[in-house]
Design a protein around this nucleic acid. Structure first.
Lengths: 336, 336
DNA sequence: GCCATGTCCTGTAACGTTACAAGTCCGCTT
DNA sequence: AAGCGGACTTGTAACGTTACAGGACATGGC
């Protein structure tokens, strides 16, 4: 490995001068700079970022912990975050938690991750009991789903509002018997994605004057297969459903498939609304009406929050919460 | 920051003993180990991986350079690679190249990336002229698309065979006039994905005795939108097409949408085959027949290739190529 | 002509870890 | 009783970089 030592010797200057050239410090004569750059080129020198990190106490790497990058929403998120992190000079290291609590705890605790500059933790399955672990001097931003009593930096989504938008839209389009899959009826303290979207959905139904009998909200795995199975079971049990809200677009795609398999036409027989507005939504047949978060704005918020904290631009006890707005994008799946 | 020094002092042993405990070296008395572990717990010590990396000369981080993790194929790939890398003790840092040659060159050249242990470079837009950069002592595995004359570790896919499979299948299902979008007619030296799949497609057509007039292979962006636009333009121009092969499933999804918009039914009027077999394929309506690489096997090959090289388990001049097999998965889009 | 100021360059000492070689102690063999 | 080998422990010197303090020299103001 070529070191600064080698370059310095080759160029006839001190290591510090090489360092100053590499780091574009002022006060280096043009002639000296040229000499050093020539030596660097000739020897094929690359700065050793590990040594730099050790010396400077920062690595320039932020860890992104998501369930799986292959899921459309998280893929989109990761894409945006990687791009924005790069713009601020950080690399993103992706850690997959499979949405399991133990793996999320791992991400926080694992020593090696502690050596990076910060952690963006998405899709949190942690309990309030675990939240203490998130506290401390290590920069963490919690993204998207769960808000703890703990003081923490948060980027949230208007999940409840989105659920209400979906319910209102279905009602407005004439649906009389509406169900949700991928939702959960939880206590007032439960604030995960599925519970919040369900809560919004139910309040939206109430506001529209639609009945919400008990079976109308069904939990499911937030996967294609989960959507298909749960939708299928739902339509086996209940008659006369003419509107369906799915907790995510992925679930909605599974549900659309289940409806097709039963010979139900969308939107004529059943209208369907998803959530996330993934790029794919407009290319499906029928294209999918969806609650659209502003992904770009949220990604901006995440990166500026974590970078500001890493760089000490915010006081240690100054925790922020950003809630991204949502809007409804109407497409064929709810056409009247 | 708590260091080994602090732990050593607190436990009344030397730093080396702390290091030995942390690294689970033998020859540490149980009582000593317990003392050290207690001190570690009490002080909340975490090993500083940056210092460890500097000392050991390796970081445990592999860079994965893909166009964008949000594209279904690359998302799936990234998911599998992250998982398998973790199993071998490596973290994966994701770099996005946007499929641009300059950004790919960047990934190779950027100093900071040079400090990681290896690079997995996917979807390569580099010329043969650039290939020299890939040579050298830095562990690189080139994935999926382009095979250079340069000696390099490669993981390829049976692109040509896949194209032929698709053509054969369409012919066998009774298609008489078949086109491909997302393909390119290139010289014999051109070996990128689009050219190879097109070449296989044409040879498959020939074998089946089907005409391949000139306009039958159309290039396009490998995106949803590209698929839609190109398919739309193609069916504007040519009459009587009854079979369509798309270079990727993403393109196929765009094409399916275009066909629906024109009132063409799949598979009754036009049969469609994609390539990649992304999970989504079976949930579309109609579900999509696709050429399926064995993603898991390829991911295994990639990780063991790069890890073996990083760990020096293979001679410096012993370059390997692994070609992943493909098979055709028949679904509704080509039902007869 | 002298001090102040600025430009350019350099030596030294860390950053926190581990490789290596060199101990110390103990019980056991001969 | 001396010698030996094994179990356990430790000091020291790196790994390659940058922060810091300071040195050498020239310029300019009075």
């Amino acid at each position: 490995m070529v070191t600064m030592q080698d370059v310095a010797r080759h160029a006839g200057v001190s290591v510090m001068t090489v360092s100053n050239v590499v780091n574009e410090q002022p006060h280096v004569r043009a002639a000296t700079r040229a000499k050093v750059l020539a030596a660097i080129a000739e020897l094929g020198y690359h700065v050793n970022t590990t040594a730099r990190s050790l010396r400077q106490g920062r690595t320039g790497v932020i860890v992104l912990a998501v369930p799986e990058v292959d899921r459309p929403y998280f893929g989109l998120l990761a894409t945006l975050l990687i791009e924005r992190a790069a713009a601020r000079g950080y690399d993103l290291l992706v850690e997959q938690t499979a949405a399991r609590r133990d793996r999320e705890l791992d991400s926080i605790a694992r020593s090696r991750l502690r050596s990076y500059d910060g952690l963006i933790l998405s899709a949190v399955q942690l309990h309030d009991d675990d939240a203490g672990l998130l506290r401390g001097d290590f920069p963490i931003v919690v993204l998207g789903e769960r808000s703890f009593a703990e003081p923490l930096d948060h980027v949230l989504m208007a999940n409840e509002e989105g659920g209400a938008l979906a319910a209102g839209h279905l009602a407005e389009r004439g649906c009389r018997r509406v169900a949700m899959i991928g939702g959960r009826i939880g206590g007032p303290d439960e604030i995960d994605l599925t519970t919040l979207r369900a809560r919004g959905f139910l309040s939206g139904l109430a506001e529209a004057g639609l009945a919400a009998d008990n079976g109308v909200v069904r939990p499911t795995d937030l996967t294609f297969e989960g959507g298909r199975e749960t939708a299928s079971a739902l339509f086996d049990e209940l008659d006369g459903l003419d509107g369906l809200f799915c907790a995510t677009d992925v679930v909605a795609i599974g549900a659309l498939r289940a409806l097709t398999d039963r010979g139900l036409r969308v939107p004529q027989d059943v209208k369907v609304v998803g959530f996330d507005d993934v790029p794919l939504a407009s290319f499906l047949s029928p294209s999918l009406t969806s609650v659209a978060p502003d992904h770009a704005v949220m990604a901006d918020a995440v990166i500026s929050m974590i970078a500001d904290r890493i760089e000490g631009l915010r006081a240690a006890d100054d925790y922020r919460t950003f809630t991204g707005a949502v809007r409804l994008v109407e497409r064929e799946s709810t056409a009247s």
